[in-house]
Design a protein around this nucleic acid. Structure first.
Length: 121
RNA sequence: AGAGCAAACCGGAUGGUCGCGCCCGAAACGGGUGAGGAAAGUCCGAGCUCCACAGGGCAGCGUAGUGGGUAACGCCCACCCUUCCCGGCCUUGCCGGGGGGCGGAUUAGAGCAACAGUGACGAUUUCCCGUAUGGGAAGUGAAACGUGGCAAUCUCUACGCGGAGCAAGACCAAAUAGGAGGGGGACGGCCCGUCCGCAAUUCCUCGGGUUAGGUCGCGCCAGAUUCCGUCGGGUAACCGGCGGGACCAGAUGAAUGACCAUCCUCCCAAAAGGAGACAGAACUCGGCUUACAGGUUUGCUCUCUUU
RNA sequence: GGGCGCGUAGCCCAGUUGGUUAGAGCACCUCCCUUACAAGGAGGGGGUCGUAGGUUCGAGUCCUACCGCGCCCA
């Protein structure tokens, strides 16, 4: 499964609880207005994405699914911005008021720029 | 034409690009398919699985007019009874339409009834009639002695119910141990009966260990499915025959989405722009209840216009 | 997914054969005591009993439906 394609397969997801705990414990954190992004280097050629959308910040299940799908779309369309070889966990902290791809994606991309600067330092 | 009420149904449409789950295929930049009327609440009823068979009685729980429908039901339909609303009149009771009703039994028994009131279930205040028994009235109160009221109080009667639930259950692999204590067990509250067993294979508790392991169950050329037409039975719910059509999501940190274009509806006087309800399958069905923007059809009532 | 339980004052809780105006403790407010604070004493306020409907003369209590929390399972 090549990371250059615009897909989002099962290999590129964080599924197990241990994988999440590793990123939370050893990774670094960038805080945004609506999302927090944890990231940690892995030894793979592709990067992996985990999502955490808590019930207390978004009580409606349909909106929770929409948040996850929008973040996945942002990962899929702008995959070069996420870069290879790292694990990400995107955590919802506040529900964005217009829940669109066009309003959520720039916030995540700016968070990723900050993450790259932190990583280079 | 408008408004109100009731019922049934629909619940944005089409095309393109990218993406995800599953299936077919040796493979493909291949093909197919992919949320709902409530998927929800888990309130009922079943299928299915295990408890060796799923036995009897008591206890417990549930239901409650009559009859029917259904695989079954606490669901649905019809009728009776009762009650409310509207309308009419041969006006104090009937008729028509619509709605509500957990609607058995208080001569089997027990219990309860605050305050007020003489008195709240065997009590007798005041006044009147009366020799007396008794009768009538006043007042209080929801109810005042009547073979009363409350069974959504216990209870009785009739009927029904074994228990748990797909995290049920079956198989496979890996790992630690081949431990300690207790008890006959199935049987879940008790008793009886039956079966297994005669020493710890099984059961419970404690201690230790392992993967939140994998496959099946789990999704269907099949059906308690659903639609249309027709015929027959029935007031109806519904059932039966014939013909034709439709329906194959099966995930497991859990797919069903995003963008673009055109159209539809709404917001705004118009354009630009924005919005498109409630809400997301988890073993599968039949109901009930709850949430729901907007729209369509049918029926009834009222108002206006035309004739 | 499936089972089970709980909602009463700001907080932790009582409240049984349905009965008048729902009750303790901590907290809060006022007064006394003290130079002042704390402790102590006296007094007081604060509740649509989670919401709605029903049974009843009368529901915190009984029944039904919703809402919000919490626990358990191989």
């Amino acid at each position: 499964m090549s990371a250059a394609s615009a897909g989002f397969s099962r290999e590129e997801r964080l599924l197990k609880k241990q994988q999440f705990q590793r990123v939370y414990g050893q990774g670094r954190l960038c805080r945004g207005r609506h999302f927090w992004v944890y990231f940690l280097a892995n030894n793979l050629e592709y990067c992996r994405l985990g999502l955490s959308v808590a019930n207390r910040f978004c009580p409606n299940l349909v909106l929770r699914n929409r948040v996850k799908r929008i973040v996945r779309e942002c990962y899929r369309n702008k995959k070069e911005a996420w870069g290879p070889g790292r694990d990400f966990v995107v955590v919802l902290k506040r529900l964005p008021a217009p829940l669109n791809l066009s309003s959520v994606c720039p916030e995540l991309l700016s968070l990723l720029k900050v993450a790259y600067e932190k990583n280079s330092n």
